[in-house]
Amino acid sequence: MNMQTNTDFTLAIEELTVSFDGFKAVDDLNFYLDKNELHVIIGPNGAGKTTVLDLICGKTKATSGSIKFLNNELIGLSEHAIVRSGVGRKFQTPSIYENLTVLENLEVSYPHSRGVFGSLLFKRNKTVLDKIHEIAHEIMLEQMLDTEAGLLSHGQKQWLEIGMLLIQDPQLMMLDEPVAGMSVKEREQTAILLNKISKGRSVLVIEHDMDFVASIAHKVTVLHQGKILATGNMDKVQNDPKVIEVYLGH
């Protein structure tokens, strides 16, 4: 694998470690994500999957190591600066603004006028509305733009949060358990949605549902106790004896 400083990778994580009072949640991790790649991280509870996303988006500070996004170091940047550089993050539980409408949720996420005074003078013009309608169409919520987000079904809330990332057009999109709590039909629709939106950007997904993983993943990484156990395509990983022992076999 290419180990030079400047790479073609969207995301290059090297020797990343974070320890909480001596416990290494992520331990000397090396991980690379290509352009246009949809990569799924799986692993047992406590493997450090969510921590990896937290580290990338700046929610948790790394103890040591490097996270390069399009060859720019992310460690040390504030959360909003990381987002503005093109990294979007969906949280495990749907994290949307329940008291705002679907339209307002998307509008707040629209990547313009993000300063105090810009937001005071922001105008909801045609460009903004067109973009909102386009995204709402993609996430299957076009009919619900004026609905208060708190009234959406669980699956629709997950889609809305994905839409809130999409409207920012991030180069790297990170989704933490996007189909948790969804019906079978909603899972299928989400798989189609993810396959569609992964074109032109890199997507990093954490997921438990193996059928769903098989339907979307280009590549799978198995994380165990903060370290990578195996990485590769779905078949390779599923047949890896170490993976079967710690994770899939149970």
């Binding site: 959360e79 994290s95 949307i96 603004y97 705002l100 707040v108 990547p111």
Partner: peptide
Amino acid sequence: RILLAVRDKEDRVRFSG
């Protein structure tokens, strides 16, 4: 609207940039 959003989901606002 951002003010309300901060009240309800501060992290989400932060991670919207």
